[in-house]
Nucleic acid binder design. Structure first.
Lengths: 179, 179
DNA sequence: CTTACTGTACCGGCTGGACGGTCTTGTCAA
DNA sequence: TTGACAAGACCGTCCAGCCGGTACAGTAAG
């Protein structure tokens, strides 16, 4: 077929996420991912020499995306905290539910795959505290957003759209010290 | 009926949670759980005729515990919201980190195992709204607590003890309309 | 000739589950 | 009181199936 400039790598990563979302995290096998990506098993293993590498790449890819979209939001002259809130809200709006189910596959494979995520969050939280003198506001906003993201991850559609927007608006007020 | 004093069922459930926490959610196999519980594989299968049943029981057991401790906290004449906050805070203090890792095993096995949890949370949130007229306060407190629980679940020890206590104190103030 | 794959075939390991057997316990007729 | 017996509470083994990973031969594009 097409031999050149293929972005099979990206396709495979997307396929892994799709399989996890559609068929459940337990269904993420090399075969399933390969067939979903329109690639043979051999082709998959050409890019990711082991399942562990695939999972690792999944985490790293997500983290890179997260980072870039955060700094992009921050480039508009916003505070880190408001950028974080807005970005999370946008994610909840745009992405389909359970779009991060692959995380469960990764944890099942090896919980250590989360450590990059952990250290990222640690640093993010540290930066948030540095950036905003009101520790209470940082705590409330950060945890509430993580709660929102958690709901999204587990596909708990508990909040209505209006409630979510109300929450985000309230958090933005708190973040700006207007409470 | 039989006369054997049997707490094997409870032991097996605890063992499953222990295996998930110590060796990772991917290591929860019937054999591993059985050996951890001091029971043979056949014995395990006697109590839980399939792995799916084990997972289901795990969810139900957790839910029953959650419910009872919530209503117990509420029996002291507290609001549902404050009871929820205090209970979650206590859980973070007492339980060892990642003590709910078995959830990941259940999701990997079949995401539908979460639906009892989902409907419980839906009802809990509905009750919270009914009980407290300040929707914003309910939203913030509920989501922030869920964020805290999420941190605990993923074993992200991002907050110091003081920060956590500060957060809880702030949330309790918000819950009581003292903000 | 190299790169970037495809496709097939295969292997060893592990897992869930079935099955048959064994020991223990409570029941009840004699 | 006893002793037979059914039922309960396990144990140990076996097996089919899937999964990750390897090996390798082939192929089409650049």
């Amino acid at each position: 077929m097409s031999g050149r400039k293929t972005n099979s790598r990206a396709k495979i990563l997307a396929a892994a996420a799709d399989v996890a979302r559609e068929f459940g995290p337990g269904s993420v096998s090399l075969e399933a991912v390969a067939s979903r990506a329109g690639v043979s098993k051999g082709g998959l293993l050409y890019y990711f020499p082991s399942k562990a590498r695939l999972m690792q790449a999944l985490v790293e890819h997500y983290l890179a995306e997260f980072r870039s979209s955060l700094s992009q939001a921050q480039a508009g002259g916003e505070t880190l905290l408001t950028a974080f809130i807005k970005r999370a809200a946008a994610e909840c709006r745009e992405k389909q539910p359970a779009s991060r189910s692959w995380i469960f596959s990764a944890i099942s494979q090896d919980p250590d795959f989360l450590s990059p995520l952990r250290s990222f969050h640690q640093q993010l939280f540290a930066n948030l505290k540095e950036d905003n003198s009101d520790l209470t506001a940082v705590l409330i906003c950060y945890l509430a957003i993580e709660g929102l993201r958690s709901m999204n991850l587990f596909d708990f559609d508990i909040l209505s759209t209006e409630e979510r927007e109300l929450l985000v608006a309230s958090l933005l007020e708190i973040a700006q010290g207007k409470r």
